[in-house]
């Protein structure tokens, strides 16, 4: 049996490595299961993978689940400021009733999770360090994710939307003052060449994005028991790898920025609480308003210790 996996990342990216690991292990299991990976959006564009996946026109993908927030508003909770504190907390999220609820919603779309995983990110700015909401007023900012845009706008920043590929030039020419994205994007887009200060995900971090390896449910159920077992075993192994790599990425990105002479700032506990208070008034509020059972889901997420 052949399965097709599409994702947007380059082959050097940890998310590709996770997919590759699963593909390799499944192949090694000798259960007549062959996963063909289409990296770098070579089959489908990043935001056009979830719909085909849920309709059974694509078998597997590695995807920031919040990309599908327009189809299932509940998914916006997987990129919500201040919800996840660090990678170990993220790992506990994955095993919680909260994630069960999210997986229940995915099941409605005929989608299941094979590998859970969160990646973190931070802030970088041209002329100053961003650690707390008071740093934001007047900055033209590109944020990754709807909930972050709402929170940063609430802090007084101006939100500019553009493709991630335009960010570097926009920073260089001064169209943008600040940017918020994942640690790996900061490095791969060489943002360190254009900023003076970087606030990576550290002891406290705001930006965590859930980016699981997903599969079409009907397709999974159509596999033989042996094939399913092999797939699940490979996924479990890949998930442990994913968590370790995710932890390494933040420190590695900070190192790259430091080497390039960029100042490294840190968020304190007080900063984190200030952001969270702001998020309550902005992102959380908007989320609860537009999502059926929004408050209940939010409570579930906060219940994770």
């Amino acid at each position: 049996t052949e399965l097709r996996l599409s994702h947007q990342w380059s082959t050097g990216d940890v998310r590709h490595k996770v997919a590759q690991m699963v593909a390799d292990d499944v192949a090694a299991a000798g259960v007549d299961l062959d996963i063909k990976i289409f990296p770098s959006q070579s089959l489908l564009k990043a935001r056009e993978q979830y719909k085909p996946l849920s309709r059974g026109l694509l078998d597997m993908t590695v995807l920031p689940l919040s990309y599908a927030g327009g189809q299932q508003p509940a998914y916006n909770l997987t990129l919500m400021p201040g919800l996840v504190k660090n990678h170990d907390h993220a790992a506990r999220m994955n095993e919680s009733p909260f994630m069960e609820a999210i997986e229940g919603i995915m099941a409605e779309d005929d989608v299941i999770v094979l590998v859970h995983g969160y990646l973190a990110g931070g802030f970088a700015a041209k002329d100053k360090c961003i650690t707390k909401p008071e740093d934001m007023p007047g900055l033209q900012t590109r944020a990754a994710g709807k909930a972050f845009e709402q929170m940063l706008a609430g802090a007084g920043a101006s939100i500019a939307s553009m493709a991630s590929s335009e960010v570097y030039n926009a920073m260089q020419s001064g169209v943008l003052d600040a940017v918020n994205t994942s640690s790996s994007s900061f490095v791969s887009y060489r943002i360190y060449e254009q900023v003076s200060c970087y606030t990576p995900a550290g002891e406290y971090a705001l930006w965590f994005m859930y980016q699981p390896l997903l599969m079409n449910k009907a397709k999974f159920e159509s596999l033989t028991e042996d094939q399913q077992k092999a797939l699940l075993a490979a996924s479990e192994k890949a998930q442990a790898f994913y968590l370790e790599e995710a932890k390494k990425e933040d420190a590695a990105s900070a190192e790259v920025f430091r080497e390039n002479g960029v100042e490294i700032a840190e968020m304190t506990a007080a900063d984190f609480d200030a952001w969270r208070a702001l998020a309550k008034e902005t992102s959380y509020k908007a989320f609860v308003e537009e999502t059926p059972n929004g408050q209940q889901l939010l409570d579930l997420a906060f219940a994770v210790e």
Binding site: G69, G70, Q71, N76, K146, E149, S161
Partner: peptide
């Protein structure tokens, strides 16, 4: 029809009905 019947929107703050 799928976009219409399922109420899909874009995943942005503006959230245009697709």
């Amino acid at each position: 029809y799928l976009a219409w019947s399922k109420g899909w929107t874009s995943d942005t703050v503006w959230g245009v009905r697709l």
